[in-house]
Write a protein that binds this DNA or RNA. Structure first.
Lengths: 228, 228
DNA sequence: ATCTAAATGTCGGGC
DNA sequence: GCCCGACGTTTAGAT
């Protein structure tokens, strides 16, 4: 890992073209040759960058100024960095990182709802998680109190795309006479938060919306946190 | 901008929980207090981070080790960083960045296609760019050789979402008797690259797919690059 | 402020 | 390897 603080001007050409005027910035060069250009603001996304695999060639232009050329090994993307003043330049051997351990993503939400399908609709029982279809797996396939099949699509944030996804599944599932024997397959759109337009679209298509309280659901598993 | 190279262990709690075991990493602290944790590999995304607005509190734990607590000002997200060895710690005043100038994104592709609608389908003429509807603007509204209205949805990468988007527009547009007077409004899905599933879905719905060659299209504007 | 669509998206899993 | 969907998506633009 090499860290360079320098006044620089940058041009990127690849999937698009982009330009950064001369200014003081931080250049991070990782062990694999990838480059990140950061300013002192904005979020975690660099102003400009080159993803690995790529190679960095250090040269000098006609005016005797340092110029880096970073080229992607796979595509023909190039990053040209002209350095006018180098304030700092240091390298450190960090070794290989053990990596990030995550917990609490959609998969976890799906696990909880699979254990407590009745929290979505009274009398609902689980048939299968990740129920396979030709266009991808349905998050939860359930059956309601009167035996009608219910497809559940789970999202952390429910927007229009999720409703479209569930609609595609329902269209396909309803072609299966076995599933729709007791009546058309119903859809439940479950999310921690449902956007107004998504709710309108879902309602228009006869899909039930269910706002999921993650913490309350987690409490069902833990008697000390039981809510009712 | 403060750059710290240190052996550290990190815990994040917020929309999810995450843990990073003890290892040597680079910590980037921006002027607004935001923190980025980078390893010597991966892409531009940090292993962990805290987005602004947030505040960094530097403390010492029971064992006398340095511990940073970064808390979001808006949400209750927290990042706890335990530093066991600080290899390097430096600060630099970078000033405000003039920002990135981009060129060649979807908007530009739309401009080119608006100038050359016939490249999508012979005889196609432009009626209006960003044709307004109740659920959002249609990228290009055109008319074909026989006077039938044609709605064009433009994407850089054509996947299923784009087909759904165009389908919604077509559904709405076809309710307008003025537009569908000469026959139902047709749809063209134009993209630099169209994913197989998107193509299948589009074809199934009677939507025409058009793969756009950006460079060739740009050449049409420049006589020196004219292709035919 | 809120919401929607784009992104040089990136990342991880399944086939 | 490609394809597909989630992401602490982030970010920019429009309402």
């Amino acid at each position: 890992m090499r860290l360079v603080v320098a006044r620089c001007q940058i041009d990127y050409a690849g999937r698009l073209t982009a330009h950064l005027p001369l200014a003081l910035r931080v250049l991070m060069i990782k062990a694999d040759g990838s480059v990140l250009v950061h300013s002192d603001g904005g979020s975690y996304k660099p102003l400009n960058w080159m993803s690995p695999p790529c190679t960095l060639r250090e040269g000098v232009d006609e005016d005797g100024q340092v110029e880096w050329t970073v080229t992607s090994t796979k595509t023909d993307d190039t990053l040209r960095i002209l350095l006018t003043d180098v304030v700092s330049d240091s390298s450190h051997d960090l070794g290989v990182d053990p990596g990030l351990q995550k917990d609490g993503v959609e998969k976890h939400l799906q696990e909880l709802l699979a254990e407590h399908p009745a929290s979505l609709d009274a009398g609902l029982t689980l048939v299968r998680r990740e129920y396979p279809t030709a266009i991808g797996p349905v998050d939860l396939m359930c059956r309601d109190a009167v035996g009608v099949s219910v497809a559940v699509e789970i999202k952390r944030r429910g927007d229009i795309d999720g409703v479209e996804q569930l609609t595609r599944y329902l269209e396909l599932l309803n072609r299966d006479p076995l599933l729709s024997a007791k009546g058309p397959v119903r859809g439940i759109f479950a999310a921690q938060e449902i956007k107004p337009q998504a709710r309108v679209l879902a309602t228009d298509r006869g899909i039930t919306c269910a706002v999921v309280d993650y913490d309350a659901l987690r409490g069902l598993d833990d008697p000390s946190h039981r809510l009712f």
